[in-house]
């Protein structure tokens, strides 16, 4: 039994020459000449699941980080640990951090949360990251919702026009991300002290910041821009053996870019949450030595 015999109808659109008396032609998979299948997709698997999980994960992080960035100043530091959301802290209203990156470059005129000054860089880096682009184009913009599932948009220009042409500034954010990762590394080194500032001590917080910075470096260095800069732009690897080796190493990390993106996102949130819980007095940092 044939379940349909004509291309699907879309009222208001011009009719096809092939079928002048029949239905109007459609767009996309319903374009004239293509197999007449009314359904926008025929997938039977749970294609929507990864879209939903991605949207939930990203929204959860955006919600948490917004709350912490705007209202977390007084719980941003619990000696010797500083929240990664507040480092470097560039305004005069930062909490005093022993030898920490609290450089009041912006002076006292900045009355908002100092996290807002710095977070723009990691935010921009992740927003323009090739993995996150895929994730949010699919999850929030349904472009496409999943492979071979028709998107709902009437037109599409990709990343050729403003504002999406700005995705090309990922390279700039990568350079800033290196600086931010360097400062967070400094914070992780400072965490090898006790609350009084003496070196050679560590607590659970030290391990949390250490794990966080390892994941942040792994994510930053696995970036597609980094892979290109260290060697991908060359045409003759044989003439640049060191860069070829670096390109191979970054390539191995790059193959895990998605996993590293999520792992580092979660680790930043966990590191901040740990500092928040310490600073708000929920518990004291268990000391290892």
């Amino acid at each position: 039994m044939t379940t349909e015999t004509r291309p699907p109808q879309h009222p208001g659109e011009p009719q096809t020459p092939a079928d002048p008396s029949g239905p109007a032609p459609g767009r996309g998979v319903h374009s004239p000449g293509r197999a007449a299948i009314a359904a926008r997709h025929l997938r039977t698997d749970r294609w929507w699941l990864s879209q939903a999980v991605t949207a939930f994960g990203l929204l959860a992080f955006v919600g948490y980080s917004t709350w912490r960035a705007f209202f977390g100043l007084h719980t941003a530091y619990a000696a010797p640990y500083v929240s990664p959301f507040y480092s470097p802290c560039l305004a005069a209203n930062c909490p005093a951090m022993k030898s920490g990156a609290d450089w009041a470059l912006f002076g006292s005129w900045w009355q908002l949360s100092p996290a807002l000054i710095v977070l723009i860089f990691p935010l921009g880096f992740r927003l323009t990251c090739y993995y996150y682009r895929k994730a949010y184009y699919r999850a929030f913009w349904s472009s496409p919702p999943a492979c071979a599932v028709a998107e709902p948009h009437a037109s599409y220009s990709g990343e050729t026009r403003f504002p999406l042409v700005l995705q090309n500034i990922h390279r700039y954010f990568f350079y800033f991300a290196i600086v931010v990762a360097g400062i967070l590394t400094y914070d992780a080194v400072l965490a090898w002290r006790n609350p009084a500032g003496q070196w050679g001590h560590a607590g659970i917080g030290t391990l949390v910041l250490l794990a966080n910075i390892v994941l942040i470096w792994a994510y930053t260095l696995s970036c597609h821009s980094c892979r290109h800069i260290v060697g991908g732009r060359l045409r003759h690897f044989s003439k640049h053996p060191v860069r070829y080796r670096m390109w191979n190493l970054v390539g191995k990390l790059n193959a895990r870019h998605m996993q590293l993106a999520w792992a580092s996102l979660i680790s930043v949130g966990v590191a901040d949450l740990y500092v928040y819980l310490l600073a708000s007095g929920a518990f004291t940092d268990p000391r290892l030595f």
Partner: peptide
């Protein structure tokens, strides 16, 4: 199975 049968003028999924 449902196999699409037809041509550019129309068609549909036929069960087998």
């Amino acid at each position: 199975f449902r196999v699409w049968r037809g041509d550019s003028s129309g068609g549909g999924l036929e069960p087998y």
